[in-house]
């Protein structure tokens, strides 16, 4: 693969999503429907990235069990985000529960086996 073309292509399409609209929208009018549809793009894209990360820990099979540390930590993050709306707290408590829960699981496994 030509890495130069890859980076260039990604840079061009990304800039094309950011700059032209900012420069032009003050002067042209987009239909309301376009704005309405665009409003759902950020939550939809972010959710489409996040949900498989939580439920498919190995990228293949769904794991709905306490052994799925990502799911547990994700649910903690969801709860913290919902209750506090504090992004930093969500990140910190989410990562701490990931590490804490996997430590606990491995401690229990060692003790049991």
């Amino acid at each position: 693969m030509n890495e130069f073309m890859l980076v260039l292509g990604m840079a061009v399409v990304t800039f094309a999503m950011r700059y032209p609209v900012m420069a032009l929208v003050g002067r042209i009018n987009l239909p309301d429907r376009v704005f309405q549809a665009l409003r759902y793009v950020p939550p939809a894209v972010l959710s489409a990235i996040v949900v498989p990360e939580l439920l498919l820990p190995d990228g293949e099979r769904m794991l709905l069990a306490p052994e799925n540390t990502r799911l547990v930590a994700g649910l903690v993050a969801l709860l913290v985000a919902w209750k506090t709306k504090n992004l930093l707290l969500t990140i910190v408590l989410g990562m701490l529960s990931l590490w804490g829960w996997s430590w606990l699981l491995s401690a229990l496994t060692t003790a049991g086996g």
Partner: peptide, 26 residues
């Protein structure tokens, strides 16, 4: 590379919304 660039485009489409929202201010 073409698929990666296309995916980049779709993933970054949300920036159109951000840009359109900021446009009247800038």
């Amino acid at each position: 590379a073409a698929i990666i660039i296309l995916t980049t485009l779709v993933v970054n489409m949300r920036h159109i919304l951000y840009a359109a929202t900021l446009a009247p201010h800038v």
